[in-house]
Design a binder for these strands. Structure first.
Lengths: 208, 208
DNA sequence: AATATGTTTGACATATTTGTCAACAAAAAT
DNA sequence: ATTTTTGTTGACAAATATGTCAAACATATT
């Protein structure tokens, strides 16, 4: 068999992504993943050498999937407001698909910071699309479309307001004393709520 | 010795809180905690029976510390805006002290949801102070001080904007391509930024 | 059919972590 | 003073997770 099969390898990666990022089994073992994929555990070692390398691959692929669309949106020449909305739609779609991805990455990054020997799983170069979007945010602030501040605040606000309610859902449901149905309803309203915050009426009215 | 010593027990709890919530060693073993506390590992079993029960105690104590002040603030009869600011000050203080607490709780809740046998570590009854604050948010919306919506949105916005930049700091620093000094600067500006979002000028102007 | 290459499997070794237990030390109570 | 209670320790056992290896298997090429 001259050509590499790639079937099983892909199956393992996809399954692992599902287990970690969709099901939220952050502590899943290699055996768990193998079971979920219906393959022998040692195949993980055969294809990825170690669990750590599988993680690296999985995170890399998740990263690719995550930025693929959004990068295109961010570097497009859409008007700022529409660009932001498209970015939000895309981002929230991905959040729905992999609600636990950010939690996983956070914990992973935290642990990496503590252990000196682990390999860095993220590209070191700053993502250009975000840099460009930050510039556009600055322009909008200059133009008075949105309140002036360090542009990173706008970006931080944007992602905070989208992500946090998703990753902290279990905790928030308890604190706010609401059930799944109600929380789903709230999540569905988020986009409009966030837009209302980021593009305040006063300033926004000028642009219309 | 009629009175329980309580010295070692307290030392272990405090150390564990520090390791988990301040240092962010989310995967710390009982040995790690014992080392950090400078005691024999089996003392953890002596005082808490199991690691799981230690976790329960630690989370419970963290919860108490976290709500102690903030509950008092939330049920006080301060004007809404001042109450919110005090709540923010208190909350951000605690975030600085235990930046990894929320991450830990999130992961813990996620895992608990998946494992049927684990004991529930959180009080089941909804926290009244938050319920009361939610009512006040509703009142403010009625009065037109803040934009109308489901009051939980205001609460979610508030905590999202405070917490997310802290717990996702490593990730955000990479994405936004800024260093520690710059990020510290951003964090220091957060309170004013958040207030500007939650209390938009137009509406706020009416109340002055 | 024989062989070579890539794939899959089960058995084993190793490391890590947690919990138990009996022995020991220290402090109070008798 | 000695007995009892409380606190502490090290050695051991059990469970779990990861990685390695040789052997078995399948498939395409010779």
């Amino acid at each position: 068999m001259p050509v590499k099969d790639c079937q099983t390898e892909k199956l393992i990666i996809d399954t692992a992504m599902n287990v970690f990022f969709a099901e939220g089994r952050l502590y899943a073992t290699t055996q768990d993943i193998a079971d979920a994929a219906g393959v022998n555990r040692t195949l993980i070692n055969y294809y990825f050498r170690s669990k750590d390398e599988l993680l690296a691959k999985v995170i890399q692929k998740a990263h690719e999937q995550f930025v693929s669309n959004s990068d295109a949106i961010l570097i497009s020449d859409l008007p700022f407001r529409e660009k932001t909305e498209q970015f939000m739609d895309d981002f929230m779609d991905k959040l729905r698909r992999f609600p636990y991805l950010e939690s996983f990455l956070t914990v992973d990054i935290i642990q990496q910071r503590l252990s000196k020997n682990s390999v860095d799983r993220f590209p070191k170069e700053p993502p250009q699309p975000i840099q460009q979007y930050l510039k556009e945010i600055g322009n909008e602030m200059e133009a008075g479309t949105i309140p002036k501040s360090n542009p990173v605040h706008f970006m931080i606000n944007l992602v905070s307001l989208m992500i946090y309610p998703i990753i902290m859902r279990p905790l928030q449901m308890r604190l706010l004393n609401i059930n799944d149905t109600e929380y789903d309803q709230v999540v569905n309203e988020r986009k409009q709520i966030i837009l209302g915050l980021l593009f305040p009426e006063t300033i926004n009215a000028n642009t219309k």
